[in-house]
């Protein structure tokens, strides 16, 4: 009995550093955000209790200086949709192709993974050059005759013209194809060779081997990728900040830009905290939802 108690203390002591880190770095700031979200708070000075007003403010159009939080969630979900239905299939396709052991496998793997290694700031700057009014894309459109002499440049980066959101999405989707590809490639490679060979002996084509042997075996990896893609889309900020160049962007707003807008431009930490809390809840909700969907399929 004494020994068990002693073991318990030892286990607790061993867990303590990780627990302290977890509480200090994750739980405490989240709790602090949750508390601040019920106050009117400038980041310093007095806090005034507001109850649910900061949350109501995010959804109530009649509130003065309403920023459409709902639109930002729609944008983030749209990005998640693109990510799941365009980025992941592309990554899966590349992973399956490379997993077949084609010539130059390592080289193509590195090339596709390269954008993940490049700093987001650099990627943002590169795409800004592409989308610039006098940049590569418009020059190309002039070259192929889509834009005629005297036509105004297409404003890919301007607010209010319906293109900015997609100008932000394209680099984001492009940058992380390699990341998901690498995850899935590991999954493809973990499928035992015997299974592939057995299917081949039974007369399966490469596509049939992928469809009926490889893909079902890597379900867990696909699940992880889907969770990363959706939560990553909800949390997206850096590339949008660089490409939209403006925190107050309406066309390309996502929850994080609204959070930063409230915090840095308006000095309203209470509302910013409410956005942070909703963002955390949304990420948890989707992570659980995806796990449940995959479980049901099992």
């Amino acid at each position: 009995m004494k020994s068990k108690k002693y073991d318990g203390v030892t286990i607790f002591l061993f867990l303590l550093p990780a627990l302290l880190l977890f509480v200090g770095i994750l739980v405490a700031p989240m709790a602090s955000s949750a508390i601040n979200s019920f106050y009117q708070y400038k980041g310093f000075g007095q806090k005034t209790w507001l109850g649910w007003d900061n949350y109501k403010r995010l959804f109530n159009k009649d509130f003065p200086a309403y920023i459409p939080f709902k639109d930002s969630v729609v944008h983030a979900l749209l990005l998640a949709g693109f990510s799941v239905f365009i980025q992941l299939p592309l990554a899966l396709g590349l992973a399956l192709l490379l997993g077949r052991g084609i010539k130059g496998e390592r080289f193509f793997l590195s090339v596709n993974f390269l954008p993940v290694l490049i700093s987001t700031v650099v990627i943002g700057q590169l795409w800004l050059k592409i989308f610039d009014p006098r940049g590569l894309l418009n020059s190309l459109l002039r070259l192929v005759g889509y834009l005629k002499e005297g036509d105004d440049n297409i404003q890919w980066l301007a607010e209010g013209q319906g293109k900015l959101l997609y100008s932000c999405f394209i680099p984001m989707l492009w940058q992380y194809v390699g990341y998901h590809m690498l995850l899935m490639y590991a999954g493809v490679k973990s499928v035992p060779t015997e299974l592939r060979e057995a299917a081949k002996i039974d007369g399966a084509t490469d596509w049939q081997v992928d469809r009926f042997v490889v893909i079902p075996s890597m379900k867990q990896i696909v699940k992880v990728s889907v969770i990363f893609a959706i939560t990553g889309s909800l949390k997206s900020y850096d590339l949008i900040r660089i490409i939209a160049m403006n925190l107050s962007t309406k066309d390309a707003s996502v929850p994080s830009t609204i959070l930063m807008d409230y915090m840095t431009l308006r000095g309203e930490y209470g509302v910013a905290s409410a956005v942070a809390v909703l963002l955390i809840l949304l990420c948890f909700f989707f992570a659980i939802l995806i796990s449940t969907i995959f479980k049901e399929r099992d």
Binding site: K42, P64, A65, I67, A158, E159, G160, Q161, N246, S248, K250, D261, Y262, L265, R266, G267, E268
Partner: peptide, 20 residues
């Protein structure tokens, strides 16, 4: 202007320039 008012003001100014 105080920062909260300035934020709201700048938001409307941006909309003026893009004629929204």
């Amino acid at each position: 202007m105080p920062s909260d008012e300035a934020g709201k003001y700048l938001e409307q100014v941006a909309l003026v320039y893009t004629k929204q």
